[in-house]
Design a protein around this nucleic acid. Sequence first.
DNA 1: TTGTTTCATTGACATTTATCATACCTCTAC
DNA 2: GTAGAGGTATGATAAATGTCAATGAAACAA
Lengths: 217, 217
Amino acid sequence: MFTNVLRYLNSDQISDLEQNKFNVSFSQGETIFKQGAPMTHIIVIDKGLLKVYLESGLRHSIILRLLKSGEIAGGPGFHTDYRHHFSLMALEDTELTFIDINKFESFILDNSIFALEFIAYLNKAHISFYDKLKTIQHKQMNGRMAATLCYLSDNIYKSNNFETNLSRQDIADMSAMTKESAIRILKNFKDSGIIECENNTFNILNKDSLMDIFENG
Amino acid sequence: MFTNVLRYLNSDQISDLEQNKFNVSFSQGETIFKQGAPMTHIIVIDKGLLKVYLESGLRHSIILRLLKSGEIAGGPGFHTDYRHHFSLMALEDTELTFIDINKFESFILDNSIFALEFIAYLNKAHISFYDKLKTIQHKQMNGRMAATLCYLSDNIYKSNNFETNLSRQDIADMSAMTKESAIRILKNFKDSGIIECENNTFNILNKDSLMDIFENG
DNA sequence: TTGTTTCATTGACATTTATCATACCTCTAC
DNA sequence: GTAGAGGTATGATAAATGTCAATGAAACAA
């Protein structure tokens, strides 16, 4: 039934969850929660695509990752300060399941297999963040943009040809640069024949070359 | 007895741990484990100071944090790929307790309070990590160096006047810049009367000013 | 002693990246 | 239609930061 860590819940817990969860729809562009707000629920993505991003000051935000159907939006506020440490916004029309955080906590206390697997889920996210940190700090703009395009094609859209609701600003925020720089680099990739991009449609023509740019510069 | 998350173990588990743990000493500069190596133990720092750092390619490394007495070095390889995702090196002569990873996993499976508190421990690390990402991406060099000096004085040495084994390269790796830039900025801070620094001795003369540079500069 | 190594320092310079200004679309509202 | 808003695109310029080279200082071995 569940494709995520919730599949480790036992049958009692699943029926408990069925009775207590509730579902909410969001339209493209709507904010699910804001960084700093109290954390009252764990969220499961049933349908759609969302961006997880850090806000700091008046400047740009940092897009940490995208969440798609089947994934969970918890957050490090769980059992610490019970606040959200990132903001969550729908990139497409989205359907979500909200699980009360006390309920979620009781699942962990009553089911140690689930607890262990939830730890593994957190650790996997942590591994990705280490990779992101390495990319941001050690790669230049071309490499960072290549990383973003590979992430989108490999992890999100699972195709070399995809249409996206991400704006140029979003793509810049994923790649740790300004939108002007992002636009320039996309144009370079286009002129080099590595990608085609027209408005919101991207087509990766030469994935090997893109991978090479990601690896080596 | 324990000042960290291990205090949530029950008495049976603590006596089990006492019989199965083992202690190892490391000298300054010695590596405890390397990124990529198999993860066989969880490590508790009994005494000393260590640096947790990411290695990527031939270039600089990234120092994620320092670990001091009472803290735990787990890592996101736990219950995922059982590999280390960062390297760990002693900055001072250090005494460590090694806990077998299977034993640690059984503690989680047998004690859900411990599991929940371990999740909280991971989440707190995750929150710091978000802060680090924001600092690296949105602050310029002065701000990043101020952050490092505040971290050292507030979290590690708990004094405005401290002696450290960190090299200039280490301080640069904590601040996401080259060692030349780190040296230049330290000199600027020195010339501005914000700090004194002579070899390995640092004295923060104007903490308010340093905080201001961290916030706004 | 001398040579060697490692780290710290400094300056000149090059590169990377952001900022600013402007123009051009494509919507939508009126 | 037309004006405004928001996103996209492009060029000129400035700022931030890294690279390279050279020197000095301290530690240490032969």
